[in-house]
Design a protein around this nucleic acid. Structure first.
Length: 545
DNA sequence: CAGTGAGCGAGCTTCCGCTTGACTT
C-alpha cells in the first residue's frame, strides 16, 4: 500500500505503479493538537498531546485496515516538512511501528514515471529531524495563537484572534495605512516641449515630446520645485532654437515570467481576471482534480496548485519547447531550455510549478468542456507555461538629446526625448504579465528617425505640475506578494489568511483595496506594543532558521 | 407560593498548515 496526500495524486500514482499497488490518500493531516484546549504541556518540555481529527477518524480506520492487510507500506506524502510529519503521524496513529515489515518513506518532487520509479528504488526511514521541525512549528503557532487570542477577548472583544501569520499580515496593512496618512506630497514641475523635425509637416503624427533635462554644460539634472521657476524657464525658452545634439540607441531585452507558483497565480488571476485568491484556488482545484474531457474521461488538467516552486519538470519543458517550435517557429525558441528558481524566502519546493499537464491540450480544445472561469484560469496557466519557454522580446530604446538655444542670451538648455520600438515580440506574442501599478511608463513613444544636427521646431512648450504619490493601499495580490517575500504563510494559507482578516472584521475590502478597520488598528497596535517579538515581520524568518 | 435578583461556575471564542468533502444558499 502506498499513501499520498491528495486523492487526485493517488489516481495518477496508481496508474504509474500498476495493479500490484493500492494507492490511498490521507487527505492532509490526520492528527493534530486538540481544538478545545492548549494541548501543550509547557512544564514538561512542551510535550504535545495529539488527537485524531474528528473528520479523519473513519478514513484513518480504513487506511489502518488496508495497511494491516498489505505486504508492504510506503509512505509517499509530500517531500516537505508537513509531509514528513503526516507520514510520522500515520505511522504512529495506525501503530505500524510495531510491524515486522516497517513502513518505508519514499519521496518524489514530480509525478512522472521516472521520478516515481526512482523514488521506490530509494526508500528511506522517516526523518525525525524534519518531523521535529514540524512539531516545533506547530507547537509554537499553538502557543502564540491560543495564549494571545484570549488576551484580546478580555481587552478588546470576544471572537478576536492573533497568530504568527495573521497578525503579521494585519500589521502590514495597518502600517501601510499609516504611511499613507502620514504622507506629505512634494510638488515638482517639468517642462515639456512638443517637437517636430523641421522638414516634417506639423501634425499630430510627427510630434514627439522632449522634456527639459538640464542646463548645457551644467552638472546634474534640473529640478524645479515651484511654479514661478517653471514659468521663468518657459519665458527664457520663448522662441528658442531646437536642434538634435546626440542620438543614442540600445537594445533592450525582456524576459518572460516564470511558470506560476500559488502566489504568482493568485496575483495574476487577481489582476487579469479579477478573481479573489479564494476563487482562484477553488477553480484551480477543479482543474487539478480533472473534468470529463472528450472521450478519454477524467483527466487532471493542471499540476498541483499549492506550490512554491516555479520549476517545471524536464519532460514538460521539452513538450513546451516542441510546441513553440512547431507553432511559432525557430525564432521564438531560445537555444537552451529556460530554468527558473525561486526567490521566495522559506520555499520548500516540494512540488512542481503550476502548469498544464499537457501543453497539447490548448484552451481552444477545451472550450466545450470548461466553465468560463475554468477556461479563463486554464488559459492563463497554459499561456504562462508556454511563454516561459519562448524567446526574449527585443526593443530598440532611443535617447535623443536636444539643444535649445535661448534667444537673446547665450544659455543653452538640454531637452531629452526617449522612445522605444518593439523589434521582436518573442514571448509577448502570447503572454504579458500585468503590473500592480497601472502606469504604462514614459518613453514608450515612437520617435521619428532623428540624426545629430537635425533642426527641430517647437509646436508647444508647457509647464506641468506633479506631486509625489503616497504608497498604494494593498490589494489581495500585493499583500500576497509581500507575504511571500517576507516568508509569512505558505501556499496553502495565503488565501485563507486574507479570509481570516476580513472574517475578524480587521480589514475591509472596497474596490479591491484593503483598508484596516478601527478594530484592526486597535488589535495591531495592542499586539505591537505588548508582543513586539511576535509582531516582528522577521519573526517567521527567524523561526525558520 | 410565585417572582426577582445576586452570585457562582461551566462552556465558548482562538493558532498554522496539510487536505477534501459535507452542507447551505
Amino acid at each position: 500500500m502506498v499513501i499520498v496526500e491528495s486523492p487526485a495524486k493517488a489516481r495518477t500514482v496508481g496508474q504509474i505503479l500498476g495493479s500490484k499497488y493500492v494507492v490511498a490518500a490521507s487527505q492532509g493531516h490526520v492528527r493534530d493538537l486538540p481544538k478545545s484546549k492548549l494541548g501543550v504541556d509547557v512544564e514538561q518540555e512542551f510535550e504535545p498531546s495529539y488527537v485524531v481529527m474528528k473528520e479523519k477518524q473513519k478514513l484513518l480506520n480504513t487506511l489502518k485496515r488496508a495497511g494491516d492487510e498489505a505486504k508492504e507500506i510506503y509512505l509517499a506524502t509530500d517531500p516537505d516538512r508537513e509531509g514528513e510529519a503526516i507520514s510520522w503521524h500515520l505511522l504512529t496513529a495506525a501503530q505500524w511501528q510495531n510491524r515486522a515489515d516497517q513502513p518505508k518513506r519514499v519521496v518524489f518532487h514530480e509525478i512522472t514515471k521516472r521520478a516515481v520509479e526512482e523514488a521506490f528504488q530509494n526508500p528511506r526511514e522517516i526523518d525525525m529531524q524534519l518531523v521535529n521541525a514540524q512539531q516545533a512549528r506547530r507547537i509554537l503557532d499553538r502557543l502564540v495563537g491560543y495564549q494571545v487570542s484570549p488576551l484580546l477577548w478580555r481587552r478588546v472583544q470576544r471572537g478576536t484572534s492573533a497568530g504568527r501569520v495573521q497578525s503579521a499580515a494585519l500589521r502590514m496593512v495597518v502600517d501601510r495605512e499609516e504611511e499613507i496618512k502620514a504622507f506629505v506630497p512634494v510638488e515638482s514641475w517639468t517642462l515639456e516641449a512638443q517637437l517636430f523635425r523641421d522638414t516634417d509637416p506639423v501634425d499630430k503624427k510627427h510630434l514627439f515630446t522632449g522634456v527639459l533635462h538640464s542646463i548645457k554644460g551644467g552638472k546634474g539634472r534640473l529640478t524645479i520645485d515651484k511654479e514661478g521657476d517653471a514659468r521663468n524657464y518657459q519665458d527664457q525658452l520663448e522662441d528658442a532654437a531646437y536642434a538634435v545634439s546626440d542620438v543614442r540607441k540600445r537594445e533592450v531585452r525582456q524576459r518572460p515570467a516564470a511558470p506560476f507558483t500559488t502566489s504568482t497565480m493568485q496575483q495574476e488571476a487577481g489582476r487579469k481576471l479579477r478573481f479573489t485568491a479564494q476563487r482562484t484556488m477553488a477553480v484551480a482545484q477543479q482543474l487539478y482534480e480533472g473534468l470529463a474531457v472528450g472521450e478519454k474521461g477524467q483527466a487532471g488538467l493542471i499540476t498541483y496548485m499549492r506550490t512554491d516552486s516555479p520549476r517545471a519538470s524536464a519532460p514538460a519543458i521539452d513538450e513546451a519547447r516542441e510546441y513553440v517550435a512547431k507553432r511559432y517557429g525557430k525564432d521564438y525558441l531560445p537555444e537552451k531550455a529556460r530554468m527558473y528558481s525561486t526567490r521566495a524566502k522559506n520555499a520548500q519546493e516540494a512540488h512542481e510549478a503550476i502548469r498544464p499537464t499537457s501543453i497539447g491540450r490548448t484552451p481552444d480544445s477545451l472550450k466545450a468542456y470548461l466553465s468560463k472561469e475554468q477556461l479563463d484560469l486554464y488559459s492563463l496557466i497554459w499561456a504562462r507555461m508556454l511563454a516561459s519557454q519562448m524567446a526574449d522580446a527585443r526593443s530598440e530604446s532611443t535617447t535623443v538629446d536636444i539643444d535649445a538655444a535661448c534667444k537673446g542670451s547665450s544659455t543653452v538648455y538640454l531637452f531629452r526625448a526617449t522612445g522605444s520600438v518593439l523589434i521582436f515580440a518573442g514571448f509577448r506574442t502570447l503572454y504579458l504579465e500585468s503590473r500592480d501599478d497601472d502606469e504604462d511608463g514614459e518613453g514608450r513613444q515612437a520617435l521619428p528617425a532623428l540624426a545629430k544636427g537635425d533642426g527641430l521646431g517647437c509646436e508647444q512648450l508647457e509647464s506641468l505640475q506633479h506631486f509625489t504619490q503616497p504608497p498604494p493601499k494593498f490589494t489581495e495580490a500585493t499583500l500576497i506578494k509581500m507575504m511571500e517575500e517576507k516568508g509569512i504563510g505558505r501556499p496553502s494559507t495565503y488565501a485563507p489568511t486574507i479570509g481570516t482578516l476580513t472574517d475578524r472584521n480587521y480589514v475591509e475590502k472596497e474596490r479591491n483595496r484593503l483598508t484596516p478597520t478601527t478594530l484592526g488598528v486597535t488589535v495591531s497596535k495592542l499586539l505591537t506594543e505588548y508582543f513586539t517579538d511576535v509582531m516582528d515581520l522577521d519573526f517567521t524568518a527567524k523561526m525558520e532558521e
